[in-house]
């Protein structure tokens, strides 16, 4: 397919001159991708593809004087990239906030020097989607387990629970420390067990930093579309198995945001 022509008339009413306009970059796709007509990006600008060789950058016009970063910008970016992911076989998201100054730059400086690398990235996610699995403890059930499993925790709890506020501070800190360590230990075991069940049905995974008392696992999965149903069924079964103490959440499918750096 020939590169999409980018005419000056495409500029919607941004109230500014051409020199102040750049191009916001959303993603890299196959050169012959058909971009959905109704897709609009930041500032409601129409989204278009600029191709070079086998790859194309998906872009929209953007006012250079204002750095993107408003919440509406983030939502628009997400809408475009996931809209592309719904419509196309392969979409590689570009990091939010990437702007090229002029149209020539998209071809000559962004795409031409990186065609090979971008091509490999586009191939690596073809026919694949990203799912995010998050597992959270039921705090109530977790704390019961922890108290039942450790006599020292049970003892400190007995000692401190009916005391007035501010009393036995050292014992309270010790109790909290023990509870924190016990939770950490359980978290490791439970996360490993979940991953062991899930990972055989995935192509790749990226662990995201977990936080808080209740988070067991937060992992991005790259999954062949053909295996998605099987994985989701597996997750349903898992969710039922562990629901007394752990809740499983599934986000997605989304564009492969966490796998755009992997070749």
């Amino acid at each position: 397919m020939t590169p999409t022509s980018v005419a000056h008339e495409d500029v919607m009413d941004l109230g500014t001159t051409d020199a102040d306009l750049g191009w916001f970059v959303y993603a890299v796709v196959d050169a012959d991708s058909r971009i959905p007509d109704d897709l609009t990006g930041l500032d409601d600008q129409p989204v278009q593809a600029v191709a070079y060789g086998r790859v194309a950058a998906v872009v929209s016009r953007f006012r250079l004087e204002r750095p993107p970063g408003r919440s509406a910008d983030l939502l628009a970016f997400h809408r475009v990239v996931d809209g592309l992911a719904d419509a196309l076989e392969s979409v590689v998201p570009v990091s939010f906030g990437s702007v090229v100054l002029d149209q020539e730059g998209i071809r000559d400086e962004l795409l031409a020097p990186n065609e090979g690398w971008f091509g490999e990235l586009v191939d690596s996610v073809r026919g694949r989607v990203q799912l995010i699995v998050q597992a959270n403890y039921d705090q109530d059930a977790l704390l019961r387990e922890v108290v039942a499993a450790d006599p020292e925790i049970a003892r400190l709890r007995e000692l401190t629970r009916d005391l007035p506020e501010g009393a036995a501070r050292a014992e309270l800190v010790r109790l909290g420390e023990l509870v924190g360590a016990a939770v950490e230990h359980r978290r490791g075991e439970d996360a490993d067990a979940l991953l062991e069940d899930i990972l055989p049905l995935t192509v790749a995974h990226v662990l995201r930093p977990a936080s808080g008392l209740e988070r067991v696992l937060d992992v991005a999965l790259l999954v062949d579309s053909a295996q998605r149903d099987e994985l989701e069924n597996r997750l349903e079964v898992l969710a039922e198995e562990v629901h007394d103490r752990v809740q499983l959440r599934l986000l997605g499918p989304t564009a492969p945001y966490d796998f755009a750096g992997e070749v």
């Binding site: 983030l74 997400h78 990437s98 702007v99």
Partner: peptide, 22 residues
């Protein structure tokens, strides 16, 4: 917004010269 931020920020191809937002 919270979900979207968690999903998209700090992800994707990083193109050094073109990242002009802070």
């Amino acid at each position: 917004l919270a979900d979207v931020i968690e999903i998209i920020l700090d992800k994707g191809i990083v193109i050094d010269a073109y990242v002009r937002v802070s």
